[in-house]
Design a protein around this nucleic acid. Structure first.
Lengths: 347, 347
DNA sequence: CTGAAAGCGCTTACAG
DNA sequence: CTGAAAGCGCTTACAG
């Protein structure tokens, strides 16, 4: 492997000139630059990252802290995996690479030192995903001057902000869709109350109900767990009601599918006797029969927006300006995907 | 942030001693070491990664080349995402961090320089995932002396090997399960012929058939695409046969679910009139109704095994020894998950 | 057991 | 426009 010294020797210049030529400094004679560039390409020279990082005091590295200890194994990772892909692609395009730095110690994690990792690797910025609201280690990070974007987690700091799908608007769209089909008795199966997306989706449901001048019936609101089991159990309770809902908005696709199973087992036809809308847009939603109408989150756009936001934070020289920058992309639009699980109201 | 010089000053020793003490060298007086360690912890000193990498000529970094340009967007990522999580956890435990280095240029990718990235970052090893067999850029990497493990992709080189689920045994287990239920007319919907997992699963199907002294009927072998659409189309063809199969082994869950939809739309009851087994163990398999019996790949174990294998390659001083080391974990065991989509044969 | 010094591969003022 | 030199933060022979 050729290093800068070798390249300098072969180009007949000093290493300083090589560095300047390759880094696009303007104070290099065009012919010199061309010659060096040509040679560099031919020899496939790339500046060593460690040397570069040391000299420039920055790494061109973005840390992604993907906390996998809180999520139930095998859950939620699908969406985050998708998201990571698009995040990485957007960051790559801006010349950054992604360092995956998830703490791996067992969970009573006093050793989690996100900020320490940032310093150790001279990270230019950090993305938090899958991190619990109560994770103790994030406080220090958010209070620091490190550029940081959290996904689906409310944090704000000097150079920290967050990004989330438009959960509220998504839930409202679901309710509106059902209303448009003639449904008036619309129930919801929510996520666990303490999670932000669950809260937001419920608020969206409630607000749209009131906008449509529909009553909010306590019996039509059951708490689920974002998993199939919770959807199943929630639907069972709704089916046992003296006056059943004609439509259900489940705040997650897994719950929606669980609800559909409960309906099927009770002999209630979907979409014939019951309309179901989910949320998330997981793969299963399009595979099942009948295919699930759902409010789809856009992992691609989410990741791209997160990258953009982070780059803006990094690029912003003044730490205090975080509130001034355009935060519009923090709310990622969602999309109602209409499939087969909703029919017109008959009752 | 305190650096090694500061720490040395406060400890009253030279930076050389600090380095030795913290890196566990044996030639340090116990009291000196204790004092330094204590102070380091208190001041939360961590050696700067760039300085360390430069001096040691290694980075403690593993590159994960996650090729996302070949896969249809939104497909296959779920499993790889899961896998990445467990891979990363296993690597973390061994003291490595993961650098995500997926090439992001548009696909006619002459610029893909995996080896260049390895040199640039002094990567200690590389994992290839989602990479197409025909990707031009991997040849050079595999021929080099870089430790490299490919996932679900057959490569071998001086320090390169691959790891895959036991596709053959999985397919055989599926067929055996159906046979045990009394089925004798067992069809299969395969994946695209050119993909290794598709090939292997088909071989497993064929071999088990012959082991059970069941005929291989060409009409019972239809090629799919690993997606729901292919499963649907394949099932349609099987349903139109003069003598229908009583059971279908679909070489992927998405295809299996597509097949179930085709059956449902044709009024053929699953599991009553038709048994279906899938492969992969995606989330949807457990969510749908009836729940899908499937041959589940173990993402967790897959990732852990890949990490182990890579660490062994890295640790092996002699490049030629790659064929001598124990390669048993290269084949990750699979597991038949019996659910509701298979009943006893009636015809 | 410890320290002074060289060196890892770069970038960037500073001179010229 | 270019080069010599200092320095980024470490580790590791080499002396002692």
């Amino acid at each position: 492997m050729v290093d800068i010294r070798e390249l300098a020797r072969l180009s007949g210049v000093s290493i300083a000139t090589v560095s300047r030529a390759l880094n696009g400094r303007d104070n290099v004679r065009p012919e010199t630059r061309a010659r060096i560039q040509h040679l560099a390409q031919q020899l496939r020279y790339t500046a060593n990252a460690a040397g570069r990082a040391l000299a420039r005091q920055r790494s061109d590295l973005i840390g992604v802290i993907w906390e996998t200890r809180y999520a139930t194994p095998g859950r939620k990772h699908a969406f985050l995996g998708e998201l990571l892909v698009s995040l990485k692609e957007a960051l790559d395009e801006a010349g950054y690479h992604v360092l995956l730095v998830s703490p791996s110690q067992p969970l009573p994690a006093e050793g989690d030192d996100y900020l320490g990792i940032v310093r150790k690797y001279n990270l230019d910025g950090v993305v938090l995903m899958g991190v619990d609201e109560h994770a103790p280690a994030i406080g220090e990070l958010v209070e620091s001057t490190v550029a940081c974007v959290a996904l689906d987690l409310v944090v704000t700091g000097r150079r920290s902000t967050y990004i989330t799908s438009d959960n509220r608007a998504g839930a409202a769209a679901a309710v509106r869709h059902l209303h448009g089909l003639g449904h008036r008795r619309i129930a919801t199966i929510t996520g666990p109350r303490h999670l932000m997306p669950a809260k937001e989706r419920y608020i969206g449901y409630r607000e749209e109900l009131s906008r449509l001048r529909l009553p909010l019936r306590p019996a039509y609101v059951v708490e689920g767990d974002f998993f199939g089991e919770g959807g199943y159990a929630g639907m069972r309770r709704l089916l046992d009601l003296p006056q059943r809902p004609t439509a259900v908005f489940a705040a997650g696709d897994a719950m929606a599918i669980g609800a559909m199973r409960a309906a099927a087992m009770a002999g209630v036809a979907v979409p014939g006797e019951l309309a179901v809308v989910g949320f998330d847009g997981i793969e299963a939603a399009s595979l099942i029969y009948p295919a699930l109408t759902t409010v789809a989150q856009d992992a691609d756009r989410f990741g791209t927006a997160a990258a953009e936001l982070l780059l803006r934070l990094i690029g912003d020289p003044d730490a205090r300006q975080v509130h001034d920058i355009d935060l519009s992309p923090c709310i990622v639009p969602i999309r109602l995907v209409v499939r087969d699980s909703c029919g017109a109201a008959t009752t």
